[in-house]
């Protein structure tokens, strides 16, 4: 079965196992390694991408569900995006492995909730684990990107 999708603005055709998670297609198939493998069960958020503008866990999204959809990965999110800029201004990353997922979740939050409060941030980002414990700076960076004071 052949299916098509758009990844970072490029039309793609996939004819492998329709049950394969989008994550492995992005990583092994397209060499887009910004989405990370952390859990494989959708509980850590390291693989977060945008599908039709909404945050999604690529590790639990089978290719058949991505058919016809528009996928944006960290590589496809504008380098000048306020979230990416705020992340750098506040020096959020430690090891950095989870941060691409954190950024994609944060960018999706701001798209739907331009002025989030602490509860909004908790709700949008509680699915993204950071083992280094950078949460305080993540919170600050989201607010900075949103232009709300901490």
């Amino acid at each position: 079965m052949q299916l098509t999708l758009t990844v970072n603005g490029t039309a793609r055709t996939f004819d492998g196992d329709p049950a394969m998670p989008l994550l492995w297609y992005l990583r092994d198939g397209l060499a887009l390694t910004g989405a990370k493998f952390g859990c494989g069960t959708g509980v850590c958020g390291a693989c977060t991408v945008h599908i039709d503008g909404s945050p999604a866990r690529a590790c639990t999204t089978p290719m058949k569900s991505a058919a016809g959809k528009t996928v944006v990965t960290i590589e496809g999110l504008d380098a000048a995006h306020p979230v990416k800029q705020a992340w750098q201004e506040i020096n959020v990353p430690q090891c950095g492995y989870c941060q691409t997922g954190q950024i994609m979740s944060a960018a999706a939050l701001l798209a739907s909730t331009p002025k989030p409060d602490d509860e909004d941030i908790d709700a949008a980002l509680r699915g993204n684990i950071c083992r280094c414990g950078t949460y305080q700076r993540i919170r600050d960076a989201v607010k900075k990107a949103a232009g709300v004071t901490a």
């Binding site: 990583r27 887009l32 390694t33 910004g34 990965t73 960290i74 750098q88 020096n91 990353p93």
Partner: peptide
């Protein structure tokens, strides 16, 4: 002084190469 880490921009753009990314 607070010299930013050299990997900062890469890490925020999905370009950091971790072991999981090695090919």
């Amino acid at each position: 002084k607070n010299v930013p880490i050299i990997d900062l921009e890469d890490l925020c753009n999905g370009r950091g190469t971790f072991g999981m990314d090695a090919v």
